[in-house]
């Protein structure tokens, strides 16, 4: 769906985005994470045609149209982190205005507005002035507005910033629903726990570089995500400890009665081989499992604890 190749953005000597290449397949809910100043918003603004890239290319849905062209804009629905609304404009008029800006006819907009307001749970606010809505409602309305022209790609830049907990939950549910409906969504957020709950793929950026990207599970596996392995042993502990000390890349974190916790950054196959090796050497295992990884752990590991 979204192909970014060698994307670079320079401001004088400062490089905000450094040769970023990324592919987001259709139907993905992609979480874009990184510390402040990592280059996430810059990348998003380039993709949306709001900023000129210093180099590289962006392709959406197989089209070769240039960034910022009408064809490209038609494929993107953009929800910025902060946005204003107009005084004295009703919700339905707000939708009608943006629909017209995409060249849609009033009759089609009216029908779609009803459906989209229902989707974002704002049906009863149709005749209400936009400036009187709460921040959460405005954010949901902005999502409805971004979906009005049925874009292939929905891009949200920090959609939860400034929202209260209830509005955040509502926004999360809305995005999950859209993902279930098959929309390709790119979301940049600082709330990692939220992203890990709803995204199926992630990209982690720091100082303009893409450190890791891909399916959440793959990335977790590839980088370990700071996950330890818990091993419960029914046989004597000493041979097992000795065996682990001989292994390259294994660090024993703690040893308790019949249980050992080791740190190992190997992938699934290497972990499986490690378990086989223990069994072959007569170690009787009653449990061998890896801790559930967290996005926070992975993020801290990859960014070296870069402050969010």
């Amino acid at each position: 769906m979204l192909y970014i190749r060698d994307l670079t953005k320079r401001y004088g000597n400062f490089t905000a985005v450094n040769h970023l290449s990324l592919h987001i397949p259709a139907g993905d809910l992609f979480g874009f994470v990184g510390p402040n100043g990592a280059g996430k918003t810059t990348t998003i603004r380039i993709v949306c045609g709001l900023l000129r890239a210093s180099g590289g290319s962006v392709q959406i849905g197989g089209t070769s149209a240039p960034v910022g062209s009408r064809e490209m804009k038609r494929q993107i629905g953009y929800v910025p982190d902060f946005f204003g609304v107009y005084d004295n404009l009703k919700v339905k008029e707000y939708m009608e205005m943006y629909g017209s800006m995409y060249g849609m006819y009033t009759r089609d907009i009216a029908k779609l507005t009803d459906d989209l307001l229902e989707l974002v749970n704002l049906t009863d606010k149709k005749e209400v002035y936009v400036d009187t809505l709460s921040r959460g409602m405005k954010q949901r309305l902005c999502v409805a507005r971004a979906l009005l022209h049925n874009p292939k790609l929905l891009i949200l830049d920090e959609p939860s910033s400034g929202l209260d907990p209830r509005a955040r939950v509502e926004m999360k549910e809305l995005l999950k629903n859209l993902h279930a409906m098959g929309k390709t969504i790119v979301i940049s957020s600082h709330i990692l726990s939220e992203l890990s709950e709803m995204c199926n793929s992630i990209g982690i950026m720091q100082q303009g570089h893409l450190l890791a990207a891909g399916l959440m599970e793959d990335v977790m596996n590839r980088f370990g995500g700071g996950r330890n392995i818990h091993i419960r042993i029914a046989s004597p502990m000493e041979p097992a400890i000795r065996l682990m000390q001989e292994q390259v890349g294994v660090r024993i974190e703690s040893v308790r009665e019949n249980e050992m916790i080791i740190a190992y950054n190997g992938g699934d196959q290497q972990i499986s081989a490690l378990m086989q090796y223990m069994l072959q050497n007569g170690i009787v295992l009653t449990d061998f499992h890896r801790e559930e990884g967290t996005l926070e752990g992975l993020f801290m590991q990859l960014t070296g604890g870069g402050a969010e």
Binding site: G49, L50, K73, R74, P80, F83, V85, Y86, M101
Partner: peptide, 14 residues
């Protein structure tokens, strides 16, 4: 100033 400009520029209006 109202922060409505960016959204406007992402639409199909030239």
């Amino acid at each position: 100033e109202r922060q409505t400009f960016d959204i406007m520029m992402t639409t199909c209006m030239s």
